[in-house]
Design a protein around this nucleic acid. Structure first.
Length: 307
DNA sequence: TTCCAGGGGTAGA
DNA sequence: TCTACCCATGGA
């Protein structure tokens, strides 16, 4: 057994704990929260095929500690990929000063956002984020967790010394499976052909994920390309845009309608257009503003976070 | 049993 | 651009 430990120094302000709790991703396989280690763990398959076990936890002075266990030593390229992937998942390289500046100007409860210093937890790859977003549509959270768990258990590469723990399946692994077999194993219902087609497009080079992660691509063009993916509509595109660091669209779902209706319209639910207008003055930070308010419903801010 | 979820595709207007 | 209608699955 070999180990590789390193620390990430996030762009401040940053908090590991609030990032892990930023949405439900930490409870979707292969992510798992280890209470005893106080760490976010997951199995990760590197592009060389080596499968590693990652543990990410809060370090000192706002840093994030990452520890990887693997059966064989990692070469330089594998080490780079490991670190790049940890940065992607934790958003430690994301500069949100623009958003925190607006929160500072608004003051009041918005100072909580600065204290929380949250990034959205990402998956190891955009492919994994896309599959998981598709698995959240028109289903309750328990259903999403079940679909993702079955997908990982059926087709993820096992950790060599603990084969019950598996990585998220690659697109190549999914394309190697007949669609009806995939459907029977994963039980994603009508989402099955969407995921299979997505995997095929990635493997065949028809969909270039790296191009979608290019910060120089305009948000408008990026959204158009996301909407071109079968299974991705307005909600899923807005959510994926947030995971790609663009916060000007709000993922409108039943949670949005329920929360905004209760908070701003005395329990009534006007049209989506009217409810979305509540956040218009946040400009490019609309999505983040809504997301913070929704999070605070379940994770009420404490006064000591202020200032 | 019926309803519907952290919606989306499609056809037809 | 907007609206009906259908879509597998499983929890409530």
């Amino acid at each position: 057994m070999h180990t590789n430990e390193f620390t990430l120094t996030p762009v401040p302000p940053y908090q590991f704990g609030s990032t892990v709790r930023s949405h439900g991703w930490a409870s979707l396989a292969p992510f798992a929260w280890s209470a005893e280690a106080n760490a976010l763990e997951r199995v990760l398959r590197l592009s060389t095929g080596q499968v590693v076990l990652l543990a990410m936890s809060a370090g000192s002075d706002g840093a994030v500690a990452v520890a990887a266990q693997h059966a064989a030593p990692l070469d330089a390229a594998e080490g780079d990929e490991l670190e790049r992937t940890a940065v992607r998942m934790l958003g430690t390289d994301e500069d949100l000063k623009g958003f925190f500046q607006v929160c500072e100007e608004r003051g009041g409860v918005w100072r909580h956002a600065i204290g929380r210093a949250t990034r959205l937890l990402r998956s190891a790859t955009l492919w994994e984020d896309m599959v998981k977003i598709i698995a959240t549509t028109n289903v309750q959270w328990g259903g999403t967790r079940g679909m993702v768990r079955r997908l990982v258990e059926a087709y993820g590469e096992p950790l060599p010394w603990d084969p019950k723990r598996r990585a998220f399946p690659t697109p190549e692994a999914v394309t190697a499976i007949a669609e009806d077999a995939f459907g029977a194993a994963v039980r994603m219902g009508y989402r099955t052909p969407y995921v299979c087609e997505l995997a095929r497009r990635i493997v065949e080079g028809d969909l270039d994920l790296a191009a979608l992660e290019d910060p120089d691509l305009s948000t408008k063009e990026l959204r158009k390309r996301l909407l071109g993916i079968k299974g991705v509509g307005a909600y899923a595109a807005a959510h994926l845009l947030m995971l790609l660091g663009r916060y000007d669209h709000i993922p409108v779902d039943t949670a949005f309608r329920s929360y905004v209706g209760a908070r701003y319209f005395a329990g009534e639910t006007p049209s989506d257009k009217v409810m979305l207008a509540v956040y218009d003055d946040w400009g490019p930070w609309r999505g983040w503003a809504y997301w913070h308010e929704l999070l605070w419903e379940f994770q009420p801010p404490e006064d000591q976070e202020l200032g």
